[in-house]
Design a protein around this nucleic acid. Structure first.
Lengths: 166, 166
DNA sequence: AGTCCGTTTCATTTTTTCTTGAAACAAATG
DNA sequence: CATTTGTTTCAAGAAAAAATGAAACGGACT
C-alpha cells in the first residue's frame, strides 16, 4: 500500500540515482541528451554488464532511446558490447576511461570549429583592404585579436589533451 | 529588379556575416542561443558603438531578443553600454576580451557541476558499505575513479584559467 | 525455409528552448 | 505633467531537440 510508487524510478538504488544524475549533468555539458547520460550513469556503477532490456526497464526509457543512446556511446568509445555466454542479447559495459568524453568533445566540437574559424578569419582578412579607411584600422585590430585567440586556443588544446590522457 | 533580396541579411557586409556566423558557432558551444551570437558577432566587428535599433534592424531580430541578448551579454561582461553624446539611446560595444566567455563558462558551468559532483561522490561513498560484498569491490573502484577524475579536473581548471588570462 | 528474439530505424509526438511582439515601464523632452 | 522615445518583461507562438513505439531488419535456432 505504500509500495508501488508511480512505477517510476522504483528500481534504481540511491547510488545509481546519484551516478545517473551526475552523468546527466556532465554529459549535458557536452551536448548529449539526458537519455545518454542516464544510460552511461547506470552502466558506470553497474558491477556487471547489462542487456538493453534491463537498461530500458530500469531507466524506464523507450526502445529507440536505448538503442540510439547505446549506439552513440559505443561510437564515442564510452561503452562496449561484451559477449555473454549462452545469451543471445548484447550486454554493455561502461568504459571507465572518462577522458573519452573530454577528448571526443575537443576533437569533434572544438577543433573543427577552430579550423572553420581560422578559415573565416582568412576570408575576413582578405576583405579588409576594401573597407573604408577610417574603419579599416579598427576592424583590422579586432580581427587580429580574433586570430590571436584562436591561435592561443589551438596551442592550448594539445596540451590539455596530453593532460587528460594521464 | 535584382535588388530587393528577401529583405533578409541584405544589410550585412560579407565581413559581418563571417564574424556573426563565427560567433554563433562558438557561443552555441557554451550554450548561448543564436541571437546572442549574432549580436556579439555584429558588435565585435563594428568599428563604432551600435544602438539597439540598429542591431535589431541589421540582424532582423525582434525587440525582445535584442534586449535580452544584450542584457545577457552585459551580465557576462562581454558587451558594454557606452554613452553617446546627444543621443538618448544606449549604445553598445563588444568587449574584445574573448577570454570572458571561456572564463564565464568555467565559473558558471563547469565549476558548480564539479562541486555538485563531489558532493554526490561523497554520498555514494557513504552508501558503499551497505552494498552486497561481491559488488562492493567493483563499485568502489568505479567511484574511486570518478573521484580521481573530478580531482584532476579541479586541479586543471585554475591552470586553464591562468592560461586564458594571458 | 520459417519462426523467434533482439536490435535498428524512422515518422510521429512530446518536451524543451528560443523568439516574438504587445504591454508595462522609465526617463528625457517640450 | 503629458508626450514622445527608448527599454524591459513576459505570455504566447515557433523552432529545434529528444523521446516514443511501430515497423523493418537480421541473424540464430528448429
Amino acid at each position: 500500500m505504500e509500495e508501488q510508487q508511480a512505477s517510476k524510478d522504483s528500481k534504481l538504488s540511491a547510488l545509481e540515482v546519484e551516478a545517473i544524475e551526475m552523468f546527466i549533468n556532465f554529459l549535458k555539458l557536452i551536448g548529449l541528451p539526458k537519455s545518454v547520460g542516464e544510460i552511461y550513469g547506470l552502466l558506470f556503477v553497474s558491477p556487471r554488464p547489462l542487456a538493453m532490456d534491463t537498461i530500458i526497464e530500469r531507466l524506464d526509457i523507450s526502445l529507440g532511446a536505448a538503442s540510439q543512446g547505446l549506439k552513440l556511446l559505443r561510437n564515442l568509445g564510452a561503452v562496449k558490447a561484451v559477449y555473454s555466454p549462452g545469451d543471445r542479447r548484447d550486454h554493455f559495459v561502461a568504459d571507465l576511461e572518462l577522458s573519452t568524453f573530454a577528448t571526443v568533445f575537443i576533437k569533434e566540437e572544438l577543433m573543427p570549429r577552430m579550423e572553420r574559424g581560422l578559415e573565416r578569419i582568412k576570408r575576413m582578412e582578405e576583405i579588409l583592404p576594401a573597407l573604408p579607411p577610417d574603419d579599416r584600422k579598427a576592424t583590422e585590430a579586432r580581427i587580429k585579436r580574433l586570430r590571436h585567440w584562436l591561435d592561443k586556443g589551438q596551442k592550448m588544446l594539445p596540451w590539455i589533451m596530453k593532460f587528460l590522457l594521464r
